[in-house]
Design a protein around this nucleic acid. Sequence first.
DNA 1: TAGATTGTTAATCGATTAACAATC
DNA 2: TAGATTGTTAATCGATTAACAATC
Lengths: 234, 234
Amino acid sequence: MISPAPKSVPEPTLRRLPLYHRFLKDLAAAGRETVSCTDIGAVLGQDPSQIRKDLEAAGIAGRPRIGYILGDMIEGLESFLGWKNTTEAFLVGAGSMGSALLGYRKFEQCGLKIVAAFDQDPDKVGRKIHGKQVLPLIKLPGLARRMHILIGIITVPGEGAQQVTDLMVEGGIRAIWNFAPVHLKVPDAVIVHNEDLYCSLATLSQKLAQTLGAGGRPIQKRATAAVARAHVTA
Amino acid sequence: MISPAPKSVPEPTLRRLPLYHRFLKDLAAAGRETVSCTDIGAVLGQDPSQIRKDLEAAGIAGRPRIGYILGDMIEGLESFLGWKNTTEAFLVGAGSMGSALLGYRKFEQCGLKIVAAFDQDPDKVGRKIHGKQVLPLIKLPGLARRMHILIGIITVPGEGAQQVTDLMVEGGIRAIWNFAPVHLKVPDAVIVHNEDLYCSLATLSQKLAQTLGAGGRPIQKRATAAVARAHVTA
DNA sequence: TAGATTGTTAATCGATTAACAATC
DNA sequence: TAGATTGTTAATCGATTAACAATC
């Protein structure tokens, strides 16, 4: 063996750590000082063993019989998740989804600062959304390079996504958070993280279909008229 | 053995099926009539074996030497994913994320029809967003029951999410698509599908940190001034 | 026929769960 | 001390990947 193995943290673990963090903040706010994995698991509905494994992966240690010290744990999670230092990001697509993300102030507490938005539409360029400038798309590669931007967020409709991707890659962006329902082609050095709501929806409806099973009510009465009525009496 | 095993489809498979569907539609539009798993895998960057397994799980059969017939495959996917019949849904939280989702017309092609929005804010109630009425939150349980609504979408800030959940459960909703960054407490019979962007972001930043590794540029120059300049010359 | 591709079974890999000794 | 909880190893489970016979 040459190197001591990079010890990459499993993705499921990574997705759970912020969940723990959130719960711990609540506990801390309520004045608690220690927690056990059993406590966390009971509330979050997860196996205590798994939580111990996750925390170990994040380099957080507890004390037998005591549990974990809340303060240390929160600290540990934040520094492991990289929430202590900020990475700047560009967002492309100042539509409704883009605007929503620009308004998520808590991203900054998670180390992500969206510093500018871009759009092709001249009507949108020049405006400010949640305090962030909307710039012409064509300026992205140059600015990204100059500012050493590493993260790009894509919230354009599917059709434009590949073109935006190419501009991001040209600008030296290394990680793309893709909200467009398209498979993006990128060089190996660039990471794509897809947030594909249609794929997500597929799992939701199938889970629903499964729990409804044979006992369910397969055909749904269309009662759209009821909505109109409800509005009148609102 | 009593029953022939429910044969539940693995979630990763479920998430991939819409990806295949999308690619196949493109191919069909381009006039192709058959595909092999190798073709799909090459474009989507996935193992052909896995694709074969996924299609088998969806009950889609091909022909040795020929591959799969595009038309059959698209048909098969759509009916397996339940995209042929529509399920009506309520959305709560007419903020920016809620508005974005209300504007996603393609949800309807995936069997999801958002028939009404709800909000607690009197300023929002009574308005229409993307053609959908915004109703007072308090009306949700009654209407949901009357209309036999099975799916609820939560796009309120974290603080209000549990209260909204309780109303949905009261209204007989069986599946919740939760965009609020909170762990929701629900009875066993209700499914929660979390779309937690903060958890998702955690995996993105960690993947980035890993690829940058030691060779990366850890400290990012703050060049916010450059954005302002770019705007001036826009 | 020969060759490509499916269908299907086996091997591998990784994550979750269980078990239990160490320990404060 | 006794008991609760971690740390850590082992067992289980499930998904991915590989292999190969069946087949058009």
